[in-house]
Design a protein around this nucleic acid. Structure first.
Lengths: 216, 216
DNA sequence: ATTCCCAGTCAACACCTGTTCACAAAAATA
DNA sequence: TATTTTTGTGAACAGGTGTTGACTGGGAAT
């Protein structure tokens, strides 16, 4: 794991320690529990530095947490953009988006686990930061939906409601995915299939909703 | 008086201490954070007993947690039965069920907060216990749906998928409800309205799903 | 009336926690 | 090369943690 540690006195970790701390925290979240249950000392120990070195990079643990959160969402937003700009016919779009998304979840397991455990169990600061981010995704999805000619007669509030329905479900399925073992490929496939079905069902419902509203 | 012998040292709390411990833990979860972050000592302090008294009632903290979990779900199951046996026409059923449910959430805030924070952040034992319970609700809902003549052509797997869609969403909305202040009545109403709309949309989708499958 | 056990207390333990301080090595800058 | 800034170290602190053991009051059972 650790590379050349021949000289144990001073190693020129030029700014690497910061990343080592973040990585250590993420690792510990995977196998120990929520971030809030980690101690400064065990993080530094895992990172291979002395406790006091922590303060050279973060004022306290909660700062580390927020940095981790930022890192998680930065790349997530990037992937979302990628999903969004994939222009596909509606039928393929659902399946395609879900595939990209869940592949991303698989490849970034640690970050998602970190966020998942903080969503309801974290400090108020963390929770509201995550919720804000999710609300942002929801709004963006609603805006995307508004561009569909299929949906152009639905008011903004209902669009928001529909987007929330989608986001809530994908979130729940993500948690379900994270509970699975990494090797459980069939389980992962099942979640993907369920996701696709559920979204298609919602899609059907939206269609009916439109005609229902229009006929009033 | 060097040492008071009978003033407050010995009180005959016949088995009340156990409940005091559970209540104290629940209170602390509300204002401090997830159960896993509570210490045995602060729970006993809040309960008004000395730390060692804890062991007269529970072998360790995780046992307290499981007891709390059991208590939470015992009454929840009871309420669910009540909701289920309310026989109403479909249109009213959605609204009626959601009203009963969210009123129950409001009246049992502490228990729901406890469960919510443990769902993803708790120990593996707790998480799987909660997930099992949720899966149970989902299956029961699927069975209820199967009795609808409206849905009798849909196979079991798809019914499960639909029930999961409903449960996932209600779960998410519950968390949203719990984030609101207790006095925020308009916010709570909004969540209720959203819930009703979302479930109705799903209901529409299910209708389309049926005809879609039937036409194949 | 005596015994027994339940359920509380107190003292003590070994350990882990966050944070401070002074110090020194390495890296950056001059 | 000389100086300054950055970054990691070690010792020490005050306080919180779970858990042990011996002790004792009071109610229930004998």
């Amino acid at each position: 794991m650790s590379k050349d540690t021949a000289s144990k006195s001073r190693r020129p970790k030029r700014g690497q320690t910061r990343e080592a701390l973040m990585e250590a925290a993420l690792d510990l979240v995977i196998k120990k529990g929520p971030f809030s249950s980690l101690s400064l000392r065990e993080v530094t120990k895992k990172a291979g530095v002395v406790p006091t070195a922590f303060y050279r990079h973060f004022p306290d643990m909660s700062a580390l947490g927020l940095t981790l959160l930022d890192e998680s969402f930065r790349s997530l937003r990037q992937m979302m953009r990628q999903v969004r700009q994939e222009e596909l016919p509606t039928e393929r779009m659902i399946r395609g988006s879900m595939e990209i998304y869940f592949n991303y979840v698989r490849d970034n397991r640690a970050h998602f686990l970190f966020v998942a455990k903080e969503l309801y169990g974290g400090t108020p600061t963390m929770r509201s930061a995550i919720r804000r981010e999710i609300r942002l995704f929801t709004s963006e999805l609603a805006m995307d939906m508004a561009r569909f000619p299929f949906l152009n007669q639905i008011n903004a509030e209902d669009l928001q409601m529909m987007a929330a329905l989608v986001v809530n479900n994908v979130t729940a399925l993500t948690q379900e995915m994270l509970e699975l073992e990494e090797e459980d490929l069939t389980g992962q496939r099942d979640v993907l299939i369920t996701a696709e079905k559920q979204l298609r069902l919602i899609y059907f419902g939206v269609g009916m909703w439109r005609s229902n509203k229009a006929s009033r």
